[in-house]
Structures are given as C-alpha cells and as structure tokens.
Simulated assay, not measured.
Amino acid sequence: MAEKVAIIDYGSGNLRSVEKAVERAAREAGLARHITVTSDPDDIAGSDRVILPGVGAFAACMAGLAARDGVLEALEHAVLVNCRPFLGVCVGMQLLATQGLEFGSSEGLGWIPGSVVPLKPSTHHRSPHMGWNDVTSLSSHPVFDALDGEAFYFAHSYRYAAENDAHALAVVEHGESITALIGRDNLLGAQFHPEKSQKAGLVFLGHFLHWSPS
C-alpha cells in the first residue's frame, strides 16, 4: 500500500505547486506515495509523512493553523506521538520555533527551540533575501548529504536562530550565516523552497519521501 503524504492546507503556502513537485519527486524516485492536500484532522493524524508549507507572516500562518479545528492536535499526534517524518517549508519551517518576532512576538510550535528574527540588511545584501544561493552542510543528514553545495531558491526576510547549534544542519550566506536547514529526530525544516528549486529541489523532496528516521 502506498504511503500517505499529507500536505497541510491552512490557508498559506503555494499548495498546488508543492503538491505537483512532491508528486513529480515521488515519480522520479520510483516511490509509491499517495499525496493529498488536506486540512482534515483524521487525514493528518493517519498520515505516514507530513509537509507543512508556508508563505507570509509568522503570526498569520500560526493563526491560520490554530483556526483550523483539530489541525494542531492532529499534527502533534502524527509528528510527536507517531513520529512520522515531517518537513516544514519556508514559514512552515519557521513555525517549528518557540517564537517569531515578526510584527511583535508570536508563539510558535516550539518543536525545535529558537526564535525567528529579522535578517540584517547591508549595503551588499538586501532584505528580503530572494533568489538562488548555494547551501552548505554543517552536519550529515540523509535527506541532504548528496546535495551539499547545491543552489536552492530562497524568498524570506526572517531567519531561524536555533537555541541549539546542533539543530542547524545547513546554512546559506547572505551577509550573515542563515540557517537553511534545521532538524532533529523526525523533524526537518527548509528555509528554501524545494518546489521552486528545479532539479535540486526535486532530489531533496525525493530524499525526504524515502527518509526513515531512526
């Protein structure tokens, strides 16, 4: 039976493009996966993998999650209780933090301790950070090991400042070192957009769909 991959619909994110990219990544990796965009708590709680996209402001995205009846509880059940592989994308990655400091302080999921803080603009590096940049590994991870040094597409003006440096798995340089990939256990978050990152993004998604956290 094909694994069930739930892409969470909470009113934020390029859901259609994420869905199509995940479908293509599964196909190119030769993996049988049933991929659905859903806000149904039963679908989420019973899924084998979870992807949380996100575009926009931290507080608005967190409010959107909280406004969907049963979605936060279903996410916690799938990811924290059943330990299903989880991927957060862009703001979906940032929501893993303890708090976001965009338009004041807002509480996040708190699954990977840290804060989401503004980028530091400079003469040569503007905020928002938009475009293609090489991503460099800080530690080994099966989803990213084959992609060290590859270019991915970014579009953001805030960055994840993790409390534990070990949770920052890869960085991108944009006037400062920015966490590009964060994770622990069955949790993974990408600041870049794999659905917009062409071949490297599809490989990344394929690796996530194959990943079996120990």
Rank of each mutant, 00 (worst) to 15 (best):
L202R: 13
S139Y: 11
G46P: 04
G189Y: 03
V37L: 12
L52R: 00
R24M: 12
S212R: 15
A6C: 05
E3M: 00
E163P: 02
K120A: 10
A66G: 00
M130Y: 04
E28K: 15
G149K: 10
V5R: 00
A155D: 12
F86C: 04
A45C: 03
V116S: 02
G46E: 03
N164L: 11
N164D: 15
M130P: 09
A170T: 07
I112F: 02
S105E: 13
I112P: 03
A97D: 06
V50F: 11
S212D: 14
A25I: 14
V79A: 10
L109N: 01
R126E: 13
G183Y: 05
H193P: 10
G11C: 01
E163C: 09
A59M: 04
E150C: 14
S105F: 00
E176N: 03
F154Q: 14
R68K: 06
E73M: 01
E173C: 01
E23D: 14
L96Y: 15
G11N: 06
E195G: 07
G13L: 09
N14F: 02
M62C: 05
V71W: 02
I178T: 04
A180H: 14
S137T: 11
D9E: 02
V22R: 11
L15M: 10
S17T: 01
M62D: 06
P128I: 09
S115I: 00
